[in-house]
Design a binder for these strands. Structure first.
Lengths: 247, 247
DNA sequence: TGGGCAGACCTGTCATGACAGGACGGCGAT
DNA sequence: ATCGCCGTCCTGTCATGACAGGTCTGCCCA
């Protein structure tokens, strides 16, 4: 067992379990472990990181939830076989702007970025009065050069002052929200349907208007229940199906 | 606080946290609590049920995961507003045959039920050799009389001897698997795409062949990693969108 | 009347300990 | 060589305790 890990920061604000989860996740994603290879046992991890078994279990539980590992009672934890599909729908970190790269070239082009007034739908999702200021983004996600996802996002302007002028190209919106505005996502609701694109959307996604696409509506909120993001996305599932892992 | 709860069985095999989760869930689903109403605090629940806070937290965590409740630090846990959509994709209990009823009349008609040999796709999903015996089910789910979901399921015959002759009408397949075969689901992988139905499927679902539907492929397994179920489902999202809650 | 502070109550994090039961390997007996 | 048993190691469950920090209410003072 030759793994080396960063020391966990006991004085910071980030919980130990989260730091540990990140460290393990980084190792797994580095490719150091192949599919179905065992991780160190819980007891070993408590020794290696100098934390309690509670912390280790919490970190591992999260990795199981994310589908990166699986656990078998009496045997241990193992690295899950690599998913070729992207866990976009079923993971918070898999949101439109925080898509995990799986050896694919992912680019994001911002088509529109403006201030506006929340319409009825946006207001209902974001739990704000209709007409309240929102920042609206329209972005096109490409995977290996192919259009893949077209997302229309609305965020309450009062939460993200200046976002309508920020540089967003190939940026993770969630990172930006976290660093600049202290927005920590806690949970999201998502609704999925099959839909046809209109003429404009079809052109952007380079499909015909009779191509069936996945439509995903989403609203996300912070730990204090404040809705900070609503989006509607069109996805070309003819290219890549959406994966959801249930743990 | 006038709630009455069943006593938890300390001598059985079912973990206390799971029993508690079920009890709370039953209360919530009975309608006794309205949306956003507070649950008893963790401390109160430990007193009421005579269990440790660990057990209470585990039960509540599971309910949060299922989207039935939400928690706010410093304030407590609250009943989530009732979802009108069914949590089919993102929940193990929301599998094709264990759909939660939300005040809707749900019926299931078995169209086909037979023994067969696993084809390449079934074999890959179930991790069995092609040609191995599988039980195949084709079922049509109706909600309020409207066709809603058409599911083709394959299960390794060696795990479910006699299932091809069992009475399945309006039965929960998961209940049956649990009671008769001791099959306990642990996790699942699911893939979602937009698709068109073929002529036969379109007729069953009462749509045209140019109606876009959601296609869901799924494989589920037990704690020992044995794949016990694979299905492909077509869903009419023109009727009801699919909901996924991220917690 | 309004604002600030303290205390009580809440969930979140973490440590420690114990026991149950599943998995696996080694050893001994047949 | 094979099978069964035992010991060790593993995760799962559960209890207990402590502390941090968020929330809310009531009280006191200006």
């Amino acid at each position: 067992m030759t793994m080396t890990y960063p020391r966990l920061d006991r004085d910071g604000t980030e919980p130990l379990w989260m730091q540990l989860m990140r460290a393990l996740r980084a190792t797994i994603e580095s490719g150091e472990f192949g599919a179905d290879r065992p991780l160190p046992s819980e007891a070993e991890l408590t020794d290696m990181f100098g934390v309690s078994r509670t912390v280790v279990r919490e970190a591992l539980r999260e990795l199981v939830q994310q589908g990166l590992i699986y656990k078998i009672k009496g045997r241990g934890a193992f690295v899950s076989p690599r998913k070729t599909e992207l866990n976009f729908i079923g993971s918070m970190s898999g949101s439109a702007d925080d898509l995990r790269e799986s050896g694919r070239r992912v680019t994001t082009q911002t088509i529109r970025q403006s201030l506006g007034e929340a319409d009825e739908r946006e207001a209902a999702l974001l739990r704000i009065p209709p007409g309240e200021q929102v920042v609206r983004l329209r972005r096109l996600r490409r995977v290996d050069g192919q259009p893949w996802l077209l997302v229309d996002t609305a965020l309450p302007a009062r939460l993200v002052p200046g976002l309508e002028r920020a540089v967003l190209e190939n940026q993770s919106l969630y990172d930006l929200l976290r660093r600049r505005y202290g927005i920590e996502p806690a949970a999201a609701d998502r609704w999925i349907e099959a839909a046809f694109p209109n003429r404009e959307d079809a052109a952007l996604l380079e499909v015909s208007t009779s191509t069936p696409l996945l439509g995903i509506e989403s609203v996300a909120w912070m730990p204090d229940d404040t809705r900070f993001e609503a989006y509607y996305a069109l996805h070309r599932s003819d290219q890549t199906r959406f994966y959801v892992g249930i743990r």
